[in-house]
């Protein structure tokens, strides 16, 4: 096993990456850490070219994409997969999860319960979409994370202001008006961690604010993985292509559990202690099983 050659692609090293490196080390593997900012790739050549580590890309048994930069991570995955290299997560999974509209479509195709969502490309039609959802509703950028630029829209007056700001100040991606029905959460939501075919653990994220991301101050406690939650999360993970995923789930007072978003380079620094699950170890074991099952060890 220790002969396995692993590269971890990063933008910078977060606490999660340090936990992952420690888990790899415990299994006799020292991954090469490759900063996405150091990449300089000949797109007309193949995996025989050298990585910034001065090793040919094709020598890696696995490239584990952990970039904070979504655009860099996506393009890197596209390149490595086009070369036939083993990557985690797969490009298709990352591309769907990186785009909230694409995630909604994938969940819809799979019949996964989720908040009603609409899209419009013109501000007047966006006002119609918000009215169709009824106020309050939530406007989200289709890309982005950590709860950034989410807007709870309580009425038409607020909607007009937000839409005008986005139309005037935003780039073209902010002119895609993706809106979700607001779910009146019980002061918390659920983040479940799916690794391969298992929901390994979950946390409640408590906050008095309607945005419960731990990046925005939400507090984590253990959430039991019930058979219902497990089935929902595994179905949602498969709907977006599977892999190592964090599933955000809302508890609707009438409709039960709804999948809100799915993250493909999940953060878990605050989640191992409350759940008692060594998430980094679970993730690393899955990556190694994936390489072994592929039968491709350079």
């Amino acid at each position: 096993m220790s002969d396995m050659r692993v590269a971890v692609l990063i933008t910078h090293v977060r606490p999660e990456e340090k936990l992952l490196f420690a888990a790899f080390a415990a299994r006799g593997i020292t991954p090469d850490v490759i900063a996405d900012g150091d990449l300089n790739i000949d797109l007309t050549a193949g995996p025989e070219q050298l990585a910034p580590s001065r090793i040919p890309w094709q020598a890696y048994d696995l490239i584990f994409e952990r970039s904070v930069s979504t655009s860099r991570g996506l393009y890197a995955l596209a390149i490595f997969e086009s070369w036939g290299l083993n990557v985690i997560n797969r490009y298709v999974t990352a591309a769907v999860c990186a785009d909230k509209l694409q995630t909604t479509l994938a969940l819809t195709r799979a019949g996964v319960p989720q908040p009603t969502a609409r899209v419009a490309f013109d501000t007047d039609r966006a006002l119609d979409a918000l009215a169709d959802l009824s106020y309050p509703a939530v406007l989200k950028p289709v890309t982005g994370s950590w709860g950034r630029l989410l807007a709870r829209v309580d009425n038409r007056t607020a909607a007009e202001a937000i839409l005008e700001h986005r139309q005037t100040l935003g780039n073209y991606t902010h002119h895609v008006y993706y809106a979700q029905a607001f779910v009146d959460k019980p002061g918390r939501d659920i983040r479940a961690f799916v690794v391969g075919e298992r929901t390994i653990c979950a946390i409640y994220r408590h906050s008095q604010h309607w945005i419960t991301n731990t990046a925005r101050g939400g507090q984590a406690t253990n959430c039991p993985v019930t058979p219902e939650l497990d089935a929902l999360c595994r179905t949602a993970a498969n709907a977006v292509g599977g892999g190592i995923l964090a599933i955000d789930v809302l508890e609707h007072p009438e409709h039960g559990l709804l999948v809100n978003e799915i993250n493909h380079t999940m953060e878990f620094r605050n989640s191992s202690v409350p759940t008692g699950v060594d998430i980094a170890a679970e993730v690393v074991d899955y990556t190694l099983r994936t390489v072994e099952s592929s039968g491709v060890v350079a």
């Binding site: 933008t11 910078h12 904070v68 979504t70 994370s145 950034r148 993250n263 380079t265």
Partner: peptide, 23 residues
């Protein structure tokens, strides 16, 4: 701060969060 070198130790101001950053 971002650690840009360990030997010798050197740090720079960490980059600003970009719009596509996240998990």
């Amino acid at each position: 701060l971002e650690i840009v070198s360990l030997s010798p130790a050197r740090v720079e101001l960490a980059p600003e969060i970009e719009e596509d950053w996240g998990e």
